[in-house]
Design a protein around this nucleic acid. Structure first.
Length: 329
DNA sequence: AACGAACCCAACCGCCCAACG
DNA sequence: TCGTTGGGCGGTTGGGTTCGT
């Protein structure tokens, strides 16, 4: 048996709230507080359903709501938390004073998500979107005779200017190529691939999203936080729930602009401010609290100027897990 | 200037879950 | 155990705004 609707919809108003309705709701809550949302609209003289009132209050009328543009630090925090928590918008919102889950969700979907996609990063896993690649063509050796031809091939493949760093493509192709030759062993040290720094990125360790591939965090962080591959679901739940407590136990990911290796910076942006002298860096894990990260953002007034690089040196995942060829073939 | 497309975002919907009596 | 309620979430909608031609 399904749950009964929260209210009789007949005669109840929908759509945008008027200033008068807002005032009624604010006046009522300021006098009586909120609690029983089902009876509140009737008592407040509103022709709205309780859920609508609750959403209006929590997402817009609450006095501690912070309106306006998300700061770079807020954005950084959202991305960091999302890489750990997934779509736990309310939990993420709990770490961003004045921001609501709905606002964060909208901001994620309309800004951050698109930007990550442009950068060739899967917004769900926060990993490079290797699924975009047609590896059957990549592993064709002729593609690697000339990096420009390979890149052009990918551009055609994707129908866009290459959003993925050619070095990344080369890495993926090399790995798969070696897999062809030797299906079992993974590259022992992909850092040795010429022209490629250690590729790092955060990932989503939540069981439902990480079952297919569970790259492990290494170095820098306590094992209980990094070895997600051995974490049980309950452990992850505890970790997630602890996010709402006094501290954020997630590793402070770096989203660092690397002038020497701009591997994942979106170059398709027509308004990118990432010139070689730009400073867009957040060094971690210096603080357990993302909001206190030592971020410096210079001249980052527009959204595209806040492109995020994942060329962190702090987090490393094991490519054998990530590059499971079966998932891409 | 005008128009349509694309984008943004507040708000809603439907479903689920946990807490509680 | 069951029904009710509040809250969370993913997805969607629709109106306003901005952008491109």
């Amino acid at each position: 048996m399904g749950r009964a609707p929260c209210c009789d919809k007949n005669g109840l108003k929908k759509g945008p709230w008027t200033p008068e309705e807002d005032q009624k709701l604010v006046d009522y809550i300021s006098k009586h507080g909120y609690g029983n949302w089902r009876t509140l609209p009737k008592n407040a003289g509103l022709q709205r359903c309780g859920k609508s009132c609750r959403l209006r209050w929590t997402n817009y009328l609450r006095p501690d709501i912070k309106r306006g543009r998300f700061s770079s630090e807020e954005e950084e925090t959202i991305i960091q938390l999302h890489s750990i928590l997934g779509n736990k918008w309310s939990t993420i919102a709990a770490r961003l004073p004045g921001r609501t889950d709905n606002e964060i969700k909208n901001y994620w979907n309309t800004h951050i998500r698109k930007r990550l996609l442009r950068m060739g990063i899967d917004p769900v896993t926060h990993a490079p979107r290797l699924d975009l690649l047609d590896f059957s063509s990549i592993v064709n050796p002729c593609l690697f005779d000339s990096s420009s031809s390979a890149q052009a091939n990918f551009s055609r493949l994707l129908g866009v200017e290459p959003p993925i760093n050619p070095e990344l493509l080369r890495l993926a192709a090399s790995l798969l190529s070696s897999q062809h030759q030797n299906p079992n062993p993974a590259p022992q040290n992909f850092q040795e691939i010429p022209g490629l720094n250690t590729m790092t990125c955060p990932f989503v360790p939540f069981p439902n999203e990480a079952q297919a591939s569970q790259p492990k965090l290494v170095d820098e962080f306590p094992s209980n936080l990094t070895d997600f591959s051995s974490s049980s679901n309950s452990q992850m739940s505890e970790l997630a729930s602890s996010m709402t407590e006094d501290y954020v136990p997630f590793p402070s990911y770096e989203y660092t602009y690397c002038s020497s290796d701009q591997s994942l910076i979106d170059r398709s942006s027509t308004n990118s401010a990432f010139n070689s002298h730009d400073s867009y860096q957040s060094f971690g894990p210096s603080s357990p609290t993302a909001m206190n990260s030592n971020s410096t953002y210079i001249a980052s007034s527009t959204e595209d100027e806040r492109e995020i690089s994942y060329c962190s040196e702090m987090l490393k995942f094991e490519l054998p897990d990530l590059l499971d060829g079966n998932e891409f073939m």
